[in-house]
């Protein structure tokens, strides 16, 4: 059986999407929606924002379908859009929270937040969210979404060297965070 080039395969799927072939859009959504959603959830830490971001990224993907050129993988393109949308949201929320909300947020989490945290955070997810956004995104892409180093560097728009530095720093920090959490848990017993 002839192995098709993944970039060509993606381009073919995009042509079919643009022709209104529902099976092609379903296939793409099945392949990439979970990953896009997880990436957004990890960076934003909020399910509702993650859903909006993933939907927005897919809307941009559908709109790009008629002019799609076989130059990049859909996965790389889509994750890059998700990453940029997340960064925009994070920047906006920071600006908004520092300039326009003078009062401090209630430190006690609501029932909803507690439930959400319980569902979403095991210790790794929680520790991942404490990493700087770029380290977090690099680790998620390479170690959890099975992207190659080159793909991840392309998504984050950095060199492979820079990606490796992010990964190494992120992994080290992650290990320290988890170690601290373990020690704290051990100390409480």
């Amino acid at each position: 059986m002839r192995k098709t080039d993944p970039v060509e395969r993606d381009a073919d799927l995009m042509r079919r999407v643009a022709r209104g072939d529902g099976s092609a859009s379903r296939l793409l959504a099945r392949e990439h929606l979970d990953g896009a959603y997880r990436q957004a959830l990890s960076l934003l830490g909020n399910r509702s924002d993650a859903e909006d971001t993933a939907q927005e990224a897919f809307l941009r993907l559908w709109k790009a379908a008629p002019d799609w050129q076989p130059q990049a993988r859909i996965k790389t393109w889509l994750y890059r859009v998700v990453y940029n949308l997340c960064m925009d949201r994070l920047r906006q929320s920071k600006r908004f929270s520092s300039a326009e909300i003078p009062e401090q947020a209630d430190p006690a989490p609501s029932m909803f937040e507690l439930r959400e945290r319980q569902q979403m955070h095991d210790s790794l997810t929680h520790s991942l969210q404490q990493l700087p956004a770029r380290q977090q995104a690099a680790i998620r892409l390479v170690h959890l979404e099975e992207c190659s180093g080159r793909e991840a560097a392309g998504i984050l728009d950095i060199s492979t060297d820079a990606l490796e530095s992010l990964l190494a720093r992120g992994r080290r920090k992650l290990r320290d965070l988890l170690q601290t959490a373990e020690n704290r848990k051990g100390g409480r017993k």
């Binding site: 999407v17 643009a18 022709r19 209104g20 529902g22 859009s25 379903r26 959504a29 929606l33 993933a54 939907q55 897919f58 809307l59 559908w62 709109k63 379908a65």
Partner: peptide, 11 residues
């Protein structure tokens, strides 16, 4: 919602 968007644009 994602599939609806595709359907709305091209379906």
């Amino acid at each position: 919602a994602v599939l609806n968007d595709a359907d709305r644009l091209y379906g």
